[in-house]
Design a binder for these strands. Structure first.
Lengths: 114, 114
DNA sequence: CAGTATCCTTACAGATACTG
DNA sequence: CAGTATCTGTAAGGATACTG
């Protein structure tokens, strides 16, 4: 995804990307997910973006993709230990945001009113 | 910035946006910054994007904008206590990524090679 | 079911010029 | 110095149709 000044920034962008954040979160508290379930969970994500996001996170070693060779196809996505580490931080951040959301909303109203 | 399913997601997107991450980080370990210095620090950010990012973070109550009415203009940006809280998490995440970057890079090479 | 492959759109981002 | 205002291009993202 776009410019890569340094490897760290690139990884940061994968992890904090719009859908990356949500995928890691879902995998964090859901253990194992199928493609379609994940899609429903995230709401309004297109197939293309979900696939792209999962591939990027799989490539980074954050997500494990388990294919069961049956018909119809059955694929399970889980966090790797590495992905768990990243997700930990993301979930902590999101919890903080949820806890402080009222304060932020107030700040916004103050800003818009002045 | 774009679709807002819920307030939390919107705030998350501000904080984890490409330039939001970098601005919060810089403010975190630099105390106070002038516009131009910040621009130099982040490298290759356009004036427009830096302004836009700072405004969004200011509106959210994360960043304080101090204008000194002199000529030429002098403006200082600092983190608010609220912004400090968000930046804490971001910095923790980035440290984790820096520490685990080698492992991620290895995973990428494995993925690309197979 | 779990994806690819296409096409299409817009909004994000950058460049440039100008101003208080 | 610290921005705004405008213009413009690109690529991120979405909708749809199709496939193993």
């Amino acid at each position: 995804m776009q410019v890569t000044i340094c490897p760290e920034r690139a990884i940061m962008e994968h992890v904090t990307s719009k859908w990356g954040v949500l995928v890691l979160q879902a995998l964090f508290d859901g253990a194992s997910w199928r493609f379609s379930d994940l899609r429903r969970e995230l709401e309004v994500v297109s197939e293309k973006m979900l696939t792209q996001t999962l591939r990027t996170l799989e490539r980074d070693g954050f997500v494990h993709r388990e294919v069961h060779p049956v018909i119809p196809p059955h694929v399970e996505y889980t966090l790797t230990p590495l992905g768990k580490g990243a997700a930990d931080h993301l979930v902590a951040l999101f919890s903080w945001i949820a806890a402080n959301q009222p304060e932020v909303t107030q700040a916004q109203e103050r800003y818009d009113g002045s």
